[in-house]
Computed example of a mutant assay.
Amino acid sequence: MTTRLDPQVSVHLHSPQQEAPPHPGPGWTRFVCISDTHSGIFRLPPGDVLIHAGDLSSYGALPQLTRTIDWLTSLEHPVKIIVAGNHDVNYISTDVPPVLTASQLIQRARATVRSLASAGLYYLEHESLHFTAPSGKVWKVYGSPAAPIHLEGAFQYASSTEAKAIYQCVPEDTEILITHTPPYRTLDKTRKGKYAGCPILSSRLRQLRHCRLHVFGHIHEAAGAGVDDVGGTHRVSVNAAVPLSDSIVVVDMRD
C-alpha cells in the first residue's frame, strides 16, 4: 500500500514478498524504518537511509548485538542510523567469565558500534547527526534510546523531570527524530488498551516544528504509520517494530 500525502512525502507499507515501489528519483530520500528486531534478521527493501529505533538484541548479550551489527553492516543502504532500546543491556549475565555488568556491556557495545561509522553505520545516544543523502540533501537527525521505566532494562527514566531533561536536548532544527519510545497516544496502544507512550516526548514534539519524520518502536502491537499536520507540513510518525508486523514502513521525502 502506498499513501501519497502531498508533493513532498509518500508512505509505503512494504511486504517482503513484494518488490518495493520504484524510488521516486533525484531530489528524494528514501527511508527504510525498522525497530525491535531483537537479534532477528529480516529481508528489507533497498533505500537511501536505514533507521533502526532500538532493541537491537533480545537480552543485551554481546553475541546478540554482534549478530545484529554484522547483519546491518552487510546491508547496502548507504546510511544506516541506529539507537539502542531497553532490551540492550545484559541483565541476564551471559558472559562467563568474567561476567560483565550492565554498564560495562553498554560501554563495550558503544565502542563496537561507533567503530563502524566509516562503513555508514551510525549509533546515536542522546546526540545529533548531520548526514548527506545520495541526493545531496543534508538531513539533521537526533537519536535517543530512552523510554519510560518498565521492569528491568537500559536507558529508562522514572520521572517527568528526567524525561524533560532528556527531550529538551533535542535541537529545534531536528528534521528526523529517532526515539525508542513512542510519544503518548501516537501508535502506542498496548493489547490491554493502555497508551504507553511518553507525554513529555509528545509535548516536546509540538515544539519541533521542523521535524518531518519521527521513527520509534517499543510497543510492538502498535506498529504502523500515521501522519500529523504541523504548521501546514506533514509529519510522518512510524512505529517501526517488526516482529509482529508483516510489512516494513518505507517513507519517501522530497529534499
Rank of each mutant, 00 (worst) to 15 (best):
M1F: 12
P7T: 02
P7V: 02
Q8N: 14
H14N: 09
S15L: 14
Q18W: 11
P21V: 11
H23M: 05
G25Y: 07
P26I: 07
G27V: 09
G27T: 11
T29M: 07
T29N: 06
F31C: 04
C33D: 01
I34T: 14
T37N: 07
H38F: 09
H38I: 06
G40A: 10
I41T: 12
F42T: 02
P45L: 05
P46A: 12
L50S: 07
I51W: 08
H52N: 09
H52V: 08
G54C: 06
D55Y: 08
L56E: 00
S57R: 08
S58A: 12
S58G: 11
G60F: 05
Q64C: 01
T66D: 11
T66L: 10
T68M: 12
I69H: 10
S74A: 15
S74P: 04
L75M: 08
L75G: 02
V79N: 01
V79H: 09
V79Q: 06
V79W: 02
K80F: 02
K80Q: 01
I81W: 11
I82N: 00
I82T: 13
H87L: 03
H87S: 03
N90I: 03
N90W: 00
T94Y: 10
T94L: 14
V96E: 13
V99D: 05
T101A: 02
A102E: 13
S103K: 12
A109S: 13
A109F: 05
T112M: 15
A117I: 00
A119F: 12
A119N: 13
G120Y: 02
Y122N: 11
Y122I: 03
Y123L: 15
L124Y: 03
L129C: 09
L129T: 08
F131M: 12
F131P: 01
A133K: 09
S135L: 04
S135H: 07
G136Q: 09
V138E: 14
K140H: 15
G143T: 05
G143S: 08
G143D: 06
G153F: 12
G153P: 02
A154H: 01
A154S: 11
Y157S: 06
A163L: 03
K164V: 11
A165E: 15
Q168W: 06
C169S: 13
P171F: 11
D173K: 14
E175A: 11
L177H: 10
I178C: 06
I178A: 07
P182F: 10
P183T: 10
Y184S: 03
R185K: 15
R185W: 00
T186L: 13
L187A: 03
K189F: 00
K192A: 15
K192Q: 14
Y195K: 01
C198Q: 03
C198A: 02
C198N: 05
P199H: 10
L201E: 01
S203M: 11
R206W: 08
R209D: 12
R209C: 03
R212F: 05
L213W: 05
F216R: 03
G217W: 03
H218K: 13
H218R: 13
H218D: 15
H220S: 06
H220P: 00
E221P: 00
E221H: 08
G226R: 10
D229N: 14
D229A: 11
D229L: 14
V230D: 00
G232Y: 12
G232C: 10
V236F: 04
A241V: 07
L244V: 09
L244W: 04
S247F: 15
V249H: 05
V250C: 04
V251I: 04
V251W: 09
V251K: 05
R254P: 03
